[in-house]
Computed example of a mutant assay.
Amino acid sequence: MKLAAVVLLALCLAGCKHFEHVEFEGTVTGDKSGVFVINDHAGHAIYGDNIKDGKFKVPAKVLEVPGYYSMKLTNDSTSKKAADGVFEVYLQDGKYTIKADAAKPGDYPEITSSSPIQQELSAYYSIANKLNGDLNRQASQINARINDKASSLLPKDQFVALLNSASAVEAKKRALASKIMNEFVAKYPQNTIGAHLMLQLDYESDPVVYNAVYQKLSAAVKSSDDGKEIGEKLGRLVKLIPGAKAPAINGKLLDGKPFDPMAMHKAVYLIDFWRAANDISRRNHVELKSMLREFGDKNFGVISVSMDTKADWWSSAVQEDGITWTQVSDLKGDDSPNTLNWSVTKIPHYDLVDGNWHMIERDVPIGGIYATVKQYLSKAH
Rank of each mutant, 00 (worst) to 15 (best):
L3P: 09
V6L: 11
A10L: 12
C12G: 10
L13K: 06
L13V: 07
A14E: 11
K17H: 12
F19R: 15
T27Q: 12
T27C: 07
G30V: 01
D31V: 14
K32T: 10
S33M: 15
S33G: 15
F36V: 01
D40V: 05
G43S: 01
G43F: 03
D49A: 13
I51N: 04
F56C: 02
V58D: 06
Y68Q: 06
T78M: 11
S79P: 03
Q92I: 09
D93T: 04
G94H: 03
K95R: 15
K95A: 14
K95P: 04
K99N: 11
A102N: 06
K104Y: 10
P105A: 05
G106T: 02
P109W: 08
P109C: 04
P109T: 09
P116V: 04
I117W: 06
Q118S: 10
L121A: 01
Y124T: 04
S126W: 05
I127C: 03
A128F: 06
N132S: 12
Q138K: 14
I142A: 07
I142W: 00
I142D: 02
D148C: 14
K149Y: 11
Q158I: 08
N164C: 07
A168W: 12
V169S: 02
A171V: 06
A171K: 12
K173A: 01
R174H: 15
S178L: 03
S178N: 03
K179L: 14
I180E: 09
M181Y: 08
F184M: 07
K187S: 10
Q190I: 06
N191F: 01
T192P: 02
I193C: 04
G194Y: 06
A195G: 00
A195S: 13
H196T: 12
L199C: 10
L199D: 13
L201N: 08
D202Q: 08
Y203T: 00
S205I: 07
V209H: 07
A212V: 10
V213M: 02
L217Q: 08
S223E: 13
D226E: 14
L234K: 03
G235F: 09
R236I: 13
L237W: 03
V238H: 02
K239H: 13
K239F: 05
G243M: 03
G243K: 00
K245R: 14
K245V: 15
A246E: 07
A248V: 14
I249Q: 00
N250G: 11
G251I: 07
L253I: 11
D255S: 09
G256T: 03
P258N: 09
D260A: 12
D260Q: 13
M264Q: 09
K266D: 08
V268W: 05
V268A: 02
Y269G: 01
D272P: 09
N284F: 04
N284M: 07
H285D: 15
E287P: 02
L292W: 00
G296H: 01
K298Q: 13
D308H: 02
A311M: 10
D312G: 09
W314G: 03
E320C: 08
V328K: 02
D330H: 03
T339Q: 10
L340Q: 15
N341W: 05
W342S: 00
S343H: 14
K346Y: 15
I347E: 04
P348A: 09
P348E: 06
Y350R: 04
D351S: 08
D351T: 07
D351G: 13
D351V: 05
L352P: 02
D354R: 01
N356F: 06
W357A: 05
M359A: 06
D363W: 00
A371Y: 12
Q375S: 09
S378Y: 14
S378V: 12
